[in-house]
Measured scan of single mutants.
Amino acid sequence: SEEELIEKAEKLRKEFEFIWNGIRFIIRENADEIRRFEELLKE
């Protein structure tokens, strides 16, 4: 039914948001290391 689809979509959206926030947190935490690594690659 349509309601089930909406519920599934909402659940997926929440899971995606949770994963995305996790990725963003990891990137933020490691931003300095990532930048340093990029500098090494440029040399």
Results as ranks from 00 to 15, higher is better:
32 D>V: 10
20 W>Q: 00
30 N>D: 03
36 R>E: 02
22 G>R: 14
21 N>Y: 13
40 L>R: 03
8 K>P: 07
30 N>S: 13
7 E>H: 09
27 I>Y: 04
20 W>I: 05
28 R>T: 05
26 I>Q: 01
20 W>T: 00
17 E>S: 10
38 E>N: 06
6 I>V: 07
25 F>S: 02
16 F>K: 01
10 E>G: 09
24 R>K: 03
10 E>L: 08
28 R>V: 03
9 A>Y: 12
26 I>H: 01
29 E>R: 12
10 E>P: 06
14 K>Q: 07
43 E>C: 14
37 F>H: 01
43 E>A: 11
24 R>L: 06
11 K>E: 06
9 A>G: 04
4 E>F: 10
11 K>R: 07
12 L>M: 05
11 K>N: 05
2 E>W: 14
41 L>R: 02
1 S>R: 10
19 I>V: 06
20 W>H: 00
15 E>I: 15
33 E>W: 15
19 I>S: 01
1 S>Q: 09
42 K>D: 06
16 F>N: 00
29 E>V: 14
31 A>P: 03
7 E>L: 10
41 L>P: 01
18 F>D: 01
40 L>V: 03
43 E>P: 06
23 I>P: 00
40 L>W: 12
9 A>P: 05
1 S>Y: 09
17 E>M: 13
27 I>M: 05
29 E>M: 14
3 E>H: 11
34 I>G: 04
19 I>L: 06
2 E>I: 13
38 E>D: 04
17 E>G: 09
17 E>F: 11
24 R>Q: 02
3 E>T: 07
23 I>F: 05
22 G>C: 15
13 R>T: 04
2 E>T: 11
11 K>Q: 10
26 I>K: 00
13 R>M: 07
5 L>C: 13
34 I>Y: 10
36 R>C: 13
23 I>Q: 01
4 E>I: 10
39 E>S: 06
35 R>Q: 04
6 I>A: 06
19 I>R: 01
39 E>F: 12
14 K>H: 07
43 E>M: 11
43 E>I: 13
19 I>H: 03
14 K>L: 11
1 S>C: 14
22 G>S: 13
18 F>L: 08
12 L>K: 04
21 N>V: 14
17 E>I: 14
42 K>W: 13
21 N>A: 13
6 I>L: 12
7 E>K: 05
5 L>D: 05
17 E>R: 11
6 I>N: 04
38 E>F: 15
9 A>N: 06
13 R>C: 14
34 I>A: 04
24 R>H: 01
41 L>C: 14
3 E>R: 09
9 A>T: 10
25 F>N: 03
38 E>L: 15
15 E>Y: 15
39 E>M: 07
38 E>Q: 11
4 E>N: 08
27 I>S: 02
22 G>D: 01
25 F>W: 13
20 W>G: 00
12 L>W: 13
40 L>D: 01
3 E>S: 11
6 I>H: 11
22 G>L: 15
15 E>G: 11
43 E>H: 10
12 L>N: 04
36 R>Y: 10
11 K>Y: 06
2 E>A: 11
27 I>W: 11
18 F>E: 02
2 E>G: 11
31 A>I: 12
41 L>M: 05
12 L>T: 03
42 K>T: 06
6 I>E: 06
4 E>D: 06
6 I>D: 05
37 F>I: 04
21 N>P: 01
10 E>A: 10
17 E>T: 12
13 R>P: 06
26 I>P: 00
21 N>I: 14
1 S>G: 06
23 I>D: 00
31 A>C: 15
32 D>A: 10
17 E>Q: 12
31 A>S: 04
41 L>D: 01
28 R>G: 06
17 E>C: 15
21 N>H: 05
18 F>A: 05
22 G>M: 15
13 R>A: 10
4 E>P: 07
42 K>L: 10
15 E>Q: 12
14 K>W: 14
1 S>V: 09
30 N>K: 08
36 R>Q: 05
32 D>K: 10
18 F>Y: 05
41 L>A: 03
39 E>I: 13
30 N>C: 15
19 I>W: 06
38 E>Y: 15
16 F>I: 05
12 L>Q: 04
9 A>Q: 04
12 L>C: 14
29 E>Q: 12
27 I>T: 01
38 E>K: 10
23 I>W: 08
37 F>W: 07
13 R>L: 11
42 K>Q: 09
36 R>H: 04
33 E>Q: 12
15 E>C: 15
7 E>S: 12
33 E>G: 09
43 E>F: 13
33 E>C: 15
9 A>L: 14
22 G>T: 14
25 F>V: 02
23 I>T: 00
26 I>G: 00
10 E>H: 12
8 K>I: 13
43 E>V: 11
1 S>E: 08
8 K>N: 09
19 I>N: 00
27 I>V: 02
34 I>W: 13
21 N>S: 12
19 I>A: 01
29 E>A: 14
33 E>S: 11
8 K>A: 09
13 R>Y: 12
10 E>R: 11
24 R>M: 07
16 F>S: 00
11 K>T: 10
36 R>T: 03
15 E>P: 08
43 E>Y: 13
12 L>S: 03
13 R>E: 04
20 W>A: 00
41 L>I: 09
32 D>I: 11
33 E>R: 12
23 I>Y: 01
37 F>E: 01
3 E>C: 15
31 A>G: 04
23 I>S: 00
25 F>M: 10
7 E>W: 05
2 E>D: 08
31 A>M: 12
25 F>L: 06
8 K>R: 06
5 L>I: 07
36 R>I: 09
12 L>R: 03
22 G>F: 15
40 L>K: 04
34 I>D: 02
33 E>N: 12
35 R>C: 14
2 E>Y: 12
39 E>R: 09
43 E>S: 09
28 R>P: 03
43 E>Q: 09
23 I>E: 01
5 L>T: 06
34 I>N: 02
30 N>Y: 15
3 E>K: 10
11 K>L: 11
17 E>V: 10
37 F>T: 02
19 I>E: 00
34 I>K: 03
36 R>V: 03
16 F>G: 01
37 F>Y: 04
13 R>W: 14
8 K>W: 14
25 F>I: 02
17 E>K: 09
7 E>C: 14
37 F>S: 01
6 I>P: 08
28 R>I: 07
26 I>A: 00
7 E>G: 07
3 E>I: 10
21 N>G: 03
15 E>M: 15
39 E>P: 01
30 N>L: 15
22 G>H: 13
17 E>P: 00
9 A>S: 05
29 E>L: 14
2 E>S: 13
31 A>H: 05
31 A>Y: 10
17 E>Y: 11
27 I>C: 14
7 E>P: 08
18 F>I: 06
9 A>C: 15
37 F>K: 00
10 E>C: 15
40 L>A: 02
41 L>H: 01
10 E>K: 12
23 I>K: 01
9 A>D: 03
8 K>V: 09
18 F>N: 03
30 N>I: 15
13 R>Q: 11
29 E>G: 15
10 E>D: 09
15 E>A: 15
30 N>P: 04
32 D>Q: 09
4 E>R: 08
18 F>H: 02
12 L>F: 06
41 L>T: 02
37 F>C: 14
25 F>K: 05
38 E>A: 14
1 S>L: 08
20 W>N: 00
27 I>P: 01
16 F>A: 01
24 R>E: 01
26 I>T: 00
28 R>M: 06
32 D>F: 13
7 E>D: 08
23 I>L: 10
43 E>G: 10
1 S>N: 10
4 E>G: 11
4 E>W: 11
13 R>V: 10
16 F>E: 00
8 K>L: 13
16 F>P: 00
14 K>Y: 08
34 I>T: 03
12 L>H: 04
36 R>M: 07
11 K>F: 11
29 E>S: 11
35 R>M: 07
3 E>P: 05
14 K>R: 11
43 E>N: 12
17 E>W: 14
10 E>W: 14
30 N>H: 12
4 E>K: 06
36 R>K: 06
12 L>A: 03
26 I>Y: 03
33 E>H: 11
7 E>V: 10
40 L>P: 00
42 K>P: 02
9 A>R: 05
33 E>V: 14
22 G>N: 09
28 R>S: 06
9 A>M: 13
35 R>H: 03
20 W>F: 02
1 S>T: 04
40 L>T: 02
20 W>K: 00
9 A>V: 10
15 E>F: 15
37 F>R: 01
1 S>I: 13
30 N>M: 15
7 E>F: 07
31 A>T: 07
42 K>S: 08
7 E>M: 07
12 L>I: 08
40 L>G: 02
19 I>K: 01
37 F>L: 09
10 E>I: 11
39 E>N: 04
40 L>Y: 07
33 E>P: 08
14 K>E: 03
34 I>Q: 02
11 K>G: 08
35 R>T: 02
39 E>T: 08
36 R>G: 03
34 I>C: 14
39 E>Y: 09
23 I>V: 04
3 E>W: 12
6 I>F: 08
38 E>T: 13
39 E>Q: 09
40 L>Q: 02
8 K>T: 09
19 I>F: 11
4 E>M: 09
8 K>S: 05
5 L>H: 03
19 I>P: 00
29 E>I: 14
22 G>A: 15
25 F>D: 03
